[in-house]
Simulated assay, not measured.
Amino acid sequence: MVKSEREKMAAGEWYSCLDPELDALRKVAQSAVHEHNLMHPGARDGMGPSLRELLNAPTAIIEAPFYCPYGFNIALGDDTFLNAGCTILDSAPVTIGDQCQLGPNVQIYCAEHHQDPDKRTAGLEIALPVTIGNQVWIGGAAVILPGVTIGDRAIVGAGSVVTKNVAANTIVAGNPAKPIHRSRTTKS
Rank of each mutant, 00 (worst) to 15 (best):
Y109F: 15
V106A: 00
E125A: 12
F81R: 03
S183T: 14
V94K: 04
A10Q: 14
G157T: 00
W14V: 12
P179K: 09
E53V: 04
V136E: 00
N134R: 14
A111H: 07
S31I: 01
L55I: 04
D78F: 06
P49F: 09
A64G: 03
R182Y: 09
L145E: 12
G147K: 06
G174L: 09
Q30M: 08
H181Q: 13
F81I: 06
S91I: 10
N175V: 15
L51S: 02
Q107E: 13
R120M: 07
D90A: 01
T95I: 10
Q30V: 00
G147Q: 08
C110K: 01
K3M: 15
E7L: 01
R120P: 10
I126H: 04
P146D: 08
I74S: 04
I126R: 15
Y70M: 12
M47Y: 05
V156G: 09
K3S: 13
V166H: 08
I138D: 04
N73I: 02
S183N: 12
R153N: 15
A177V: 04
M9R: 02
G139S: 06
G147L: 11
G12Q: 03
A173N: 07
S188C: 11
G157I: 01
Q107K: 10
L102D: 02
A64Y: 00
E13W: 05
Y15Q: 03
C17S: 14
G42P: 07
T170L: 05
Y15A: 04
N134V: 07
N175I: 13
Q115K: 14
